[in-house]
Amino acid sequence: MKKRIVLSILCVLLLLGVGWVSFTFYHMKHVAKEQPPKNIPYLVILGAKVNGEKMSKAFFERAKVGLQYLNQNENTKVIVTGGQGPDEDITEAEAAKRYLIENGIAEKRIFLEEKSVNTYENIKFAKKLYSINEAVFVSNDFHLYRAIQLAKAQDIKAYPLAAETPKVVKPKLFAREFLAILKWVITGK
C-alpha cells in the first residue's frame, strides 16, 4: 500500500514537472517570435559570455540582431550591458560596443552598463543609469521570456527581439534557462 502511494505521488510530480516544462517552453517560443515596433527610444543588448575580448557565439548573435535594428531605426539609442567576469579581459558591454562601432554605429548612440553580473542586474542597472521606461530587449530566443518578465517587473514597457541560439550550445542553454526561470518564479530575480 505504501509503495503504491509513493508511486502515485511520484507520477503526479512527474506530470506536474512535464506540464511546467511544456508551459514554460511554449512561452519561451511565443515571446521569441514577437517582433518589436519601430523607433523605440532604447534598445538593450543583454550581456553574455566574452572569451578574452571576443564575444561568445550566443553574444555575437545578440549583437548582430541589435545592429540590424539600430540600422533600421536611426533614432534609437542602444544600451549594451554586462560586467567583466574572472576570465574576461574586457566587460561584456565593451565587447558589444566595439562590435557596434566597427559596424558603423556612432559612439554617441551607445551607452554602457558595465557592473551587472546577471540578467536581473542588466535590466535594473540600465534602468537606473538611463531612466528607461520603454525599450526593445535583445537576447537569444531561449532567454527572452524571462528577460521581458524581469523588465516588466521593473516598470519598463518591454519588447522582445530574438537572436538565434547557436545549435552547438542550444540544449545546454535551454536546460539552464529552465532552472533560471524556476529561480525567477521563486525569488522574483
Rank of each mutant, 00 (worst) to 15 (best):
E88I: 15
E88K: 06
E88G: 13
E88H: 11
D89R: 14
D89H: 14
I90L: 09
I90Y: 07
I90N: 08
I90V: 14
T91R: 06
T91L: 10
T91Y: 09
T91M: 09
E92F: 01
E92D: 11
A93G: 12
E94A: 13
E94G: 02
E94C: 04
A95C: 09
A95E: 03
A95T: 04
A95H: 01
A96T: 13
A96H: 05
K97D: 03
K97N: 05
K97W: 07
R98W: 06
R98H: 13
Y99G: 05
L100F: 14
L100M: 12
L100C: 11
I101N: 11
I101L: 12
E102G: 08
N103L: 13
N103S: 12
G104I: 15
G104A: 12
G104L: 15
I105R: 11
A106L: 13
A106I: 09
A106H: 11
E107L: 11
K108L: 07
R109H: 13
R109T: 13
R109Q: 12
R109G: 06
I110T: 07
I110E: 05
F111M: 14
F111S: 14
F111I: 12
F111N: 12
L112A: 09
L112I: 10
L112N: 07
L112H: 07
E113N: 10
E113A: 07
E113K: 06
E113Y: 08
E113F: 06
E114G: 06
E114P: 05
E114V: 00
E114I: 00
E114F: 03
K115S: 13
K115P: 02
S116D: 00
S116F: 00
V117I: 15
V117F: 00
V117Q: 02
V117L: 06
N118K: 08
T119C: 04
T119W: 01
Y120L: 01
Y120F: 13
Y120A: 01
E121R: 01
E121W: 00
N122H: 08
N122P: 04
N122G: 04
N122Y: 02
N122V: 02
K124R: 11
K124W: 02
K124F: 06
K124S: 09
K124D: 04
K124Q: 11
F125E: 05
F125T: 02
F125K: 04
A126P: 05
A126K: 01
K127G: 06
K127P: 05
K127H: 09
K127Q: 15
K128P: 03
K128D: 15
K128H: 12
L129D: 08
L129P: 00
L129T: 05
L129I: 08
L129F: 13
Y130E: 10
Y130S: 10
Y130C: 07
I132K: 00
I132Q: 02
I132C: 04
I132T: 10
I132E: 02
I132S: 01
N133D: 14
N133W: 05
N133P: 03
E134Y: 05
A135T: 03
A135D: 07
A135K: 02
V136D: 07
V136Q: 06
V136A: 07
V136M: 06
F137Q: 03
F137K: 04
F137R: 04
F137A: 01
V138M: 00
V138I: 14
V138T: 08
V138K: 01
V138G: 00
S139G: 15
S139F: 09
S139W: 07
S139T: 09
S139P: 07
S139Y: 11
S139I: 04
S139V: 04
